[in-house]
Amino acid sequence: MRHLTALRNLRDRRERRERRRQADRRYGARLLGAAGVAAVAAVAFGLLLTLVEGQWRPLARLDASAARDLHRYALGHREWTAALHLLSDRIWDPVTLRAAVAVLTGWLLYRRAWRLAAWAAVTAVAGGLIGLLAKTVVERARPALNDPVAHAPGYSFPSGHAMTATTSFAVLMLVLAPLLPRAWRIACWCVAVFSVLGVGFTRVALGVHWFSDVLGGWLLGLAVVALTTWAFEAWRADAGRRRTPVSRGLEPELTEATPEPGPRVR
């Protein structure tokens, strides 16, 4: 009997070790995936920047045709233009989105989710500063259109609206996802993606950005989010936190009254 019990205990230990190894491999794959996304986005942004600086003709024609066609439509449909202004300058405005992230960060501090609050703040601030630095370095002029329907200060590449939307909606979803039921989570991810794409469209449609500006903002914002997420996931691996897909949020422990670290995995 003792021999059978010892065999069962040995088998259970082996199964637990195997489950831990499998979990470690999956977690490592997610870390590598985040790093890969960041690398791809950064390389794509660098390539786009090279094409913009070199005034690559196919890209220049795409920028010019998109600006011209959307501007013509905006001039002929004032209600449509008013709706674009509402979305771009009020609902999806960078100030509004940054304020939402600031409120979320304050709530995380209240919940004592210190590292997640730091991740949210660093992602938002780093995105803003990197975007501003890129604008200053590139110094690309905004579209010059006859009878413009909107005006914006500063340089054009990359789009600050597009980059802020990318980082802000990513922060909001990656933090709040664990608190949402599965059906709501999917719907909210869809709304977030639609909003990020919608921000870019409004900026081109209003004639204050080239299409390539918006694409650059999306890529650079994605690179920032992927890099900070990779760093946060690496910390969770070191701390032995419970492993979950990133689509369910960065810290599932938020659903608990007082988040506590899980047992350290060895």
Rank of each mutant, 00 (worst) to 15 (best):
T5W: 04
N9L: 12
N9Q: 15
N9D: 15
L10C: 15
L10I: 03
R13G: 12
R14C: 10
R21G: 08
A23C: 08
A23L: 15
R25G: 00
R26Y: 05
Y27H: 13
G28E: 12
A29F: 11
R30K: 07
R30D: 14
L31H: 01
L32G: 13
A35L: 15
G36F: 10
A38P: 01
A41D: 06
A42M: 09
V43E: 08
F45M: 03
G46E: 11
V52F: 07
R57T: 14
R57N: 13
R57G: 02
L59T: 06
S65E: 14
A66Q: 06
A66C: 07
R68G: 11
H71L: 07
H71I: 12
Y73I: 14
A74R: 04
L75S: 03
L75F: 02
G76M: 02
G76P: 07
T81N: 13
A83G: 14
L84W: 08
L86W: 14
L86D: 04
S88V: 06
D89Q: 14
I91S: 05
D93S: 10
L97P: 04
R98C: 09
A99H: 01
A99G: 13
V101G: 07
A102V: 12
A102I: 07
L104P: 02
A113L: 03
L116G: 02
L116D: 01
A118D: 01
A121V: 10
G127R: 09
L133P: 00
K135M: 13
K135H: 05
T136P: 00
R140Y: 03
A141H: 10
A141P: 02
A141T: 11
A144E: 15
L145A: 11
N146D: 15
D147W: 02
D147N: 13
H151Q: 13
P153M: 05
S156Q: 08
A162Q: 02
M163C: 01
S168Q: 10
S168L: 05
F169I: 04
A170F: 04
A177E: 05
P181N: 00
W184V: 12
R185P: 09
I186R: 15
V193I: 14
S195G: 12
V199H: 04
G200D: 04
G200M: 04
T202Q: 08
T202F: 01
V204S: 06
V208E: 02
W210S: 06
F211Q: 00
L215W: 00
W218D: 03
W218C: 10
L219R: 06
L222F: 09
V225W: 00
L227E: 06
A231E: 01
E233I: 14
A239C: 05
R241S: 07
R242P: 00
P245T: 00
V246F: 04
L250T: 08
L250W: 08
E253C: 02
L254N: 02
T258Q: 12
P259T: 07
G262S: 12
P263M: 01
